[in-house]
Design a protein around this nucleic acid. Structure first.
Lengths: 88, 88
DNA sequence: ACTATTGTTCGACAATCGTTAAATTACAAC
DNA sequence: GTTGTAATTTAACGATTGTCGAACAATAGT
């Protein structure tokens, strides 16, 4: 497992973003209203989440919509559980 | 979920350490043989893993033995899965 | 007591990270 | 065209992080 994924999860704002996306697809603008950060900072965080494929991106006009990548979350979860000793 | 846990997982050497402990309890000295890092660096990493309760510690004489904390791994896995949209 | 082994603590250093201000791009409405 | 909104890019900053060498502490064996 690439450590980049865990680095992406190692930030309060990014975890909040994932929490917001857990309620469904959302635009960058709406996400921004729920966080006390600037627009460039949000753009940076979204790029980090994209780079590890934790989120999907869809552009429509001037808006950018984001949604969770559930299969990636499954992948991470399975890796974590896989660390546990197999009763050997 | 505290981001400190994901920070603890955001390092190649620490992931390798967890992988080693997945095969069972191990001493710091044995872990060290499997990594190309110095003793102080290993000590640092073990402290990070302890601080987020990912590992258990047991001292015996001059040796320190480490083992995985399975329930903490469960906790992380459940958090990850909990991010997924509840089909709403 | 002396030596060897195991492990921690303390500085110090280079690299990375989160953040912002400023400038830039892209699209929509007028 | 101009204006306004949405989003990215760049450069710079302070803070955090991984690493090591050096010194230190604790236990074991001679």
């Amino acid at each position: 497992m690439d450590t980049e994924i865990f680095k992406a999860l190692s930030d309060d704002n990014r975890l909040r973003i994932l929490g917001i996306l857990g309620s469904g697809e959302s635009s960058a603008c709406e996400i921004l209203k729920n966080l006390n950060i600037s627009q460039p900072t949000l753009s940076h965080h979204m790029k980090v989440l994209q780079s590890v494929e934790l989120i999907n991106v869809r552009k429509s006009g001037q808006w950018t919509y984001y949604s969770l990548n559930g299969s990636k979350l499954d992948e991470i979860s399975e890796f974590i559980i896989g660390l546990k000793p197999s009763k050997a």
